[in-house]
């Protein structure tokens, strides 16, 4: 097994009496982009600052390539860690040109300007070297900030909400550009974000921080198919929460039984919530069926089907688009579950 590029073990941190990190474990492999996802206030920015060396952890350790850079005894200054950062607002040095910014961390020498241009090319800003930071758009500034962080070939780049200051329309585009630049540079990165879309688009793996701990780490598809918590499930995409009870090898729900082998993650509780993705729902028109369609709402990727069950209860069911296009209010349908993402304590 290779040594992880970044290895965080049991890190705790408090601001005054408020403990924000309660024993965080996290590792990032060389060449990997790991998204650290969490609500605002979950401590994800604090963790990023601890990794970069701007704060010292109250407990636990941080190691880079197996070398401990922070624990109870050791503290390596940020300038000696070779960890680049891209802060939320870019924080370009306003008194330096774009090239001056990118060159800031490079040693003087003949190779300097070539490396600057190379890094600017990498983020799609070749030829922008003479511009001043205030002449750039927000997205361009963020890309320069990334080029500046990548220039000295750091061991790790920490990107702290790098797109949150951008307009929503720009966010996806700049996110793609940044992900492309990171992979072209072969860089290892810790991308801190509160936005699931951003995390899923840009990262190889996603770690979810909640309650001061990492509650789940995995590939985006793992988080979608096998979420460990309701928060992770909701962050990863639309989910329907159904009451369910364990009965033998299956779960009984208001929409009928689901085989346990079809459930992505089973927490083992007897009774709780079953989390269902749109792809798990099968809807078939059937005259005389007990379930009645109340309304059909069309979303971009699926539809929200409001149905009235036999017992009169109403429920909005996510469903695949193709099987529902012809449904009208008043139609009778059969609804079945072909699986579920997770079965969790309610």
């Amino acid at each position: 097994m290779t040594t992880p590029r970044l290895d965080v073990r049991g890190v705790e941190h408090s601001y005054g009496t408020q403990q924000v990190l309660r024993g965080v474990d996290l590792s990032v492999e060389p060449g990997e982009v790991l998204a650290l996802m969490g609500e605002s206030g979950s401590g994800k920015t604090t963790l990023g600052r601890i990794v970069a060396g701007f704060e010292a952890p109250a407990a636990g350790s941080v190691a880079l390539d197996g070398e401990v850079v922070a624990d109870g005894r050791t503290f390596v200054a940020p300038e000696s860690r070779h960890v680049g950062v891209v802060p939320q607002e870019g924080a370009l040095f306003p008194h330096l040109s774009v090239a001056g910014n990118v060159a800031f961390g490079l040693p003087r020498g003949p190779a300097r300007s070539a490396r600057v241009e190379e890094c600017l090319e990498l983020v799609g800003l070749g030829g922008f070297g003479e511009r001043r930071p205030h002449e750039l758009s927000g997205g361009q500034q963020q890309r320069v900030a990334l080029a500046r962080a990548l220039a000295p070939s750091p061991r790790l780049v920490v990107l702290d909400e790098p797109f949150s200051a951008l307009d929503a329309s720009l966010r996806a585009e700049v996110g793609e550009q940044v992900a492309a630049a990171l992979s072209a540079a072969g860089a290892t990165a810790l991308l801190i974000t509160h936005d699931a879309g951003e995390a899923f688009r840009s990262a190889d793996r996603v770690a979810v921080l909640a309650g001061g701990r990492v509650v789940q780490t995995g590939r985006p598809v793992d988080l979608y198919d096998r979420p460990r918590t309701a928060e992770v499930a909701a962050a990863a995409g639309w989910v329907l929460k159904l009451p369910a009870r364990r009965e033998g090898g299956a779960l009984s729900t208001p929409l009928g039984p689901v085989g346990l082998e079809q459930v992505g993650y089973d927490s083992g509780v007897e009774q709780g919530d079953l989390l269902v993705r749109p792809g798990h729902v099968v809807v078939e028109p059937a005259d005389g069926a007990a379930v009645e369609v109340v309304s059909v709402r069309s979303f971009t990727e699926h539809v929200g089907l409001r149905v009235r069950l036999a017992d009169g209860a109403e429920l909005v069911v996510p469903a695949p688009r193709r099987s529902t296009t012809d449904l009208r209010p008043g139609d009778r349908v059969e609804v079945r579950l072909a699986g579920a993402a997770a079965f969790l304590a309610g």
């Binding site: 600052r49 970069a52 060396g53 300038e79 500046r148």
Partner: peptide, 27 residues
Amino acid sequence: LDPAQDEVARSLGKGPAAVLVQLTVPQ
């Protein structure tokens, strides 16, 4: 001055004295 600038400079390998001379003073 944005304190994040100082942090970025530190992460690029500059010590406190270099930050003062190269970032704070020029600004």
